[in-house]
């Protein structure tokens, strides 16, 4: 798999530092699961974090703290099993409660379906299914929108996006992704502000269906 569309460095740094909203952490984890280039990027920013930790001002621990820690080493904790190898990376499966078959879709009209995932309210994460050959309604956003392809592919003004590719759009972009023929297109979409549809009807729909 060759991934052509990557995450911006600022997002990789934010993920490494641990300062992104939960929904963005989720899309970064999902993309990095599929993309070695961005994994190397995140691990580089981790190295910068390690350098900061190394130089952090020492704050002395209580005299008994080492003893306490040594006692706790004998507590055994079962390793958490991870499920890898599905359509969804493990991090996403944790939020869905399983792989693709477990998604609780809601119809949005014209064959498009979505499922909002439970994250903190600072940003929204949703899975979106666009039938092959169909288009998403035209929309712009107030903030940043990131779209990660998990199955199928789509084209928009920025190019062709297949599994693992990530499309980053900010407030300046109005775009109409069109799903490629061959398979329904399933994406993880994260926004830090609601979408704005440019046509009147979807705006009404937006209020009803909550995207």
């Amino acid at each position: 798999m060759t991934i052509k569309h990557h995450l911006p460095d600022a997002t990789l740094l934010g993920y490494s530092a641990g300062t992104l909203p939960e929904a963005f952490n989720l899309i970064v984890a999902a993309h990095v699961s599929l993309c070695d280039a961005c994994r190397a990027g995140v691990e580089s920013y981790d190295a910068l974090g390690g350098a900061l930790l190394n130089e952090a001002n020492d704050s002395s621990m209580a005299p008994t703290s080492l003893e306490t820690a040594l006692r706790r080493l004998d507590d055994t904790r079962a390793p958490t099993p991870t499920t890898q190898g599905g359509v969804f990376p493990a991090a996403l499966q944790d939020y869905v409660g399983g792989d693709l078959a477990s998604v609780k879709w809601r119809a949005m009209g014209m064959g498009v379906k979505q499922a909002v995932l439970p994250t903190s309210s600072a940003a929204t994460a949703r899975l979106l299914m666009i039938p092959e050959g169909a288009a998403m309604p035209d929309h712009t956003h107030n903030g940043t929108e990131m779209t990660l392809v998990l199955q199928g592919a789509f084209d928009d003004a920025d190019g062709h996006f297949a599994r693992g590719d990530i499309d980053v759009a900010d407030a300046a972009v109005t775009h109409t992704p069109v799903a490629s023929k061959g398979a329904d297109c399933i994406c993880l979409v994260v926004t830090d502000a609601p979408l704005r549809f440019t046509a009147w009807l979807p705006r009404v729909l937006q209020r009803i269906i909550g995207i």
Binding site: A17, A29, V32, T82, A90, L92
Partner: peptide, 20 residues
């Protein structure tokens, strides 16, 4: 990386999605 994840858990009470 361990300390950062513990911090997210501690200050935000959120889990941290990790890559495969």
């Amino acid at each position: 990386t361990i300390a950062r994840n513990r911090r997210i858990d501690m200050l935000r009470r959120q889990r941290r999605p990790e890559p495969d």
